[in-house]
Write a protein that binds this DNA or RNA. Structure first.
Lengths: 227, 227
DNA sequence: TCTCGGTTGGCACTCAGTGTCTTATAGTGA
DNA sequence: TCACTATAAGACACTGAGTGCCAACCGAGA
């Protein structure tokens, strides 16, 4: 009988095996629970819906991502922070390539799993756009561009990840993703920045007086709070 | 008792009213069927799942979109064709603003409806990317860019549409969407085109001989088939 | 040994979605 | 006008996902 804390893990393993062996729709939660040596009711204590069983914990991941965005230094360019966040997601897939590939095979075939995953990635996208709005302003011309940038990042991330999974999960996804992201963002950044800087208070001057050895982050805070 | 052909319409109306009045989860398919004066089984002959009841027919719309892409003249720039397709979608929303606004209110509140809609829009996105691959090549640097462009178009479309719906569905969405799309695409098109034209057969020459009065589309076919 | 908080099991219940057979209806041709 | 046919609708039973509720269990501490 499995130890308490491993119930979730064994449920995931059982679900993945059964789904691959006999199909998603053809597998009942009863069967998964039985294979994991657990009651049916217990399954639904660990997963909201049947689809959740095989995915990495997207809820927890999203919380980590949001935390990363919220605690990011204002000295780091926002697109860098988002890139870091995207790489965090990649890393969780890269942790266990074999499982990731199996999961990919399933999501390719089962539409309800596919939709489930699309919904998950769209939540990352929302978080990224919201972060850009907070950092660079949410006035209307920018707002749209921030959404487009967020979509571009998520799309790029997914594109590289899918390629890696299709290839059996070999090679360095992290580096590949980082390169693809920097390529795309290099192309999009000028478009984001150049065309619509709000001309409102361009001629306002901000003067910061500080001691010579004040740490940079403190000066940044000063500037941040002054506008 | 409603005439046969209006069953679908009356089911949609009943579903929308009931969902708004007492909530999505709190409404059973039995209630919807009863309100529409129809048997429960009939509901599932018109809609695959409960969520489908309030959406415009995304399946039919997607088929129209795909048909539009497939029958588009190769003389028209692909991004123009996709823009037209996106505007077709907007038009269906603009046809009945009141219903569209109600639907939006619901999707804002009910997560399963939200996910359903996200899945639908992602299918459009796939279709757009596939179309770009077919028209402009699917070799790897481009492939990613096509996906990003498709994501940008869908994101822009959704952004304008959501704004219109939030504003109660007044004003000309079509024009607003067209303007936003042309703005975004103007920014992205150079990035798409300039950086990665395959240098392979740049110096190959194609000579087309034809009669003076041959219609343009025939010449285009000629050129298309010659490479 | 008792108790307390958290995890699991067991059970009953609702309701979404499907398969299947029967019935009604609209359209078509004679 | 009538019979015929394809298609839409009804009736009914059945599976399985997801939930609510209560009892049993387990480990930790007093």
């Amino acid at each position: 009988m499995p130890v308490r804390r491993d119930v979730r893990r064994s449920l995931t393993a059982a679900a993945l095996d059964l789904f691959l062996a006999q199909g998603f729709d053809e597998t009942t939660v009863d069967q998964i629970a039985e294979a994991a040596g657990v009651a049916r009711r217990t399954f639904f204590r660990h997963f909201r819906v049947k689809e959740d069983a095989i995915f990495p914990d997207h809820d927890a991941m999203l919380r980590e991502i949001v935390a990363h965005l919220e605690t990011a230094s204002p000295l780091v360019p926002p697109l860098t922070t988002i890139t870091e966040a995207a790489l965090m997601v990649v890393d969780t897939y890269a942790e266990d390539p074999e499982t990731s590939v199996k999961r990919y095979e399933l999501t390719r075939r089962v539409s309800s799993l596919r939709e489930h995953e699309i919904a998950a990635t769209s939540r990352y996208q929302r978080a990224f756009a919201a972060f850009l709005n907070k950092r660079d302003g949410a006035e209307e011309p920018r707002r749209l561009r921030h959404e487009v940038i967020a979509a571009a990042i998520v799309t790029t991330h997914n594109h590289v990840l899918r390629g890696w999974l299709r290839g059996g999960g070999t090679g360095d996804v992290r580096t590949r993703t980082a390169e693809a992201l920097s390529g795309v963002l290099a192309g999009l950044e000028p478009w984001l920045d150049d065309h619509d800087r709000p001309a409102d208070n361009q001629d306002e001057v901000l003067i910061v007086v500080t001691r010579r050895r004040t740490p940079l982050w403190k000066i940044a805070q000063e500037i941040e709070s002054a506008r």
